[in-house]
């Protein structure tokens, strides 16, 4: 009975419309997955470790941050801590989407939580809030599982491509990671708060480089985000 119900949900129309809604997203996600698979071995991750990180953590930004920290020899404890800081924004996503998951069973709530990423949140919340749309959580599950599969498979594909390159550093591939972050941050500089955050973070990145245990990254993140928040608050009041 329970199995029949599970199967019915699996085959439901919202699930497949979620899968279809994920397809355009894959254009943007696949290059990240390929890049992650390419970069993993350049910082000393094993092939299995690279795929496992994509499959078990499933959080693109913090995975790239982890690569950057591994490259500079950061302690594992601090990498986990910065993963927490980078992913704190998920609290916000989860808080705003939680009401739509109320009727899911606890295991499915856990699955929905695991699949909550920037892209899945953005598409699902836009879909749920559309007037006249039925906010079926199955839509979100179809969307999330499709994005997840693409993320893991494109990581593996990136590894396969990278395995054909003999010496990544000679080709300058150690610069691919910083370049990735330039590509992530520059398009977000759309207002003064973002510019202020970026400038303060860059200044601290230079001045505090060399703090033990890469505390510089935590310091820069917390101070710069607070400055960005302050600029945004001040501008919205004036």
């Amino acid at each position: 009975m329970a199995q029949e119900r599970a199967q019915a949900a699996w085959q439901s129309a919202p699930f497949w419309s979620g899968v279809r809604a994920a397809l355009p997203l894959l254009l943007g996600i696949t290059p990240y997955g390929l890049a992650f698979g390419l970069l993993g071995p350049t910082v000393g991750l094993s092939a299995a470790g690279t795929v496992a990180m994509s499959a078990i953590v499933f959080a693109g930004s913090s995975q790239f941050v982890a690569l950057g920290l591994l490259q500079s020899g950061t302690s594992y404890l601090l990498i986990v801590l910065s993963t927490l800081v980078v992913n704190l924004r998920h609290l916000l996503y989860a808080g705003s989407i939680a009401p739509y998951f109320r009727r899911l069973s606890p295991p499915r709530k856990a699955l929905a939580s695991f699949l909550l990423a920037d892209e899945t949140y953005a598409v699902a919340i836009a879909h749920f809030r559309r007037p006249g749309a039925s906010p079926a959580p199955e839509f979100y599950l179809g969307l999330g599982l499709t994005v997840y599969l693409d993320w893991v498979l494109s990581t593996a594909a990136g590894l396969a491509v990278g395995g054909l390159v003999p010496d990544p550093t000679a080709l300058g591939l150690d610069f691919a990671l910083p370049a990735t972050f330039i590509g992530l941050v520059v398009p977000q500089l759309r207002d003064r708060a973002a510019w202020a955050t970026c400038a303060v973070s860059a200044a601290i990145a230079i001045l505090a480089r060399g703090l033990p245990g890469r505390l510089d990254i935590l310091l820069a993140t917390l101070v710069a985000a607070t400055v960005g928040w302050g600029v945004e608050t001040w501008r919205s009041r004036s």
Binding site: F64, V86, P178, R209, T221, L222, A225
Partner: peptide, 14 residues
């Protein structure tokens, strides 16, 4: 504001 702050550190130092 967290993503911009984090991404900048790694881009700048790299």
């Amino acid at each position: 504001h967290i993503p911009v702050a984090v991404f900048t550190v790694i881009a700048v130092q790299g």
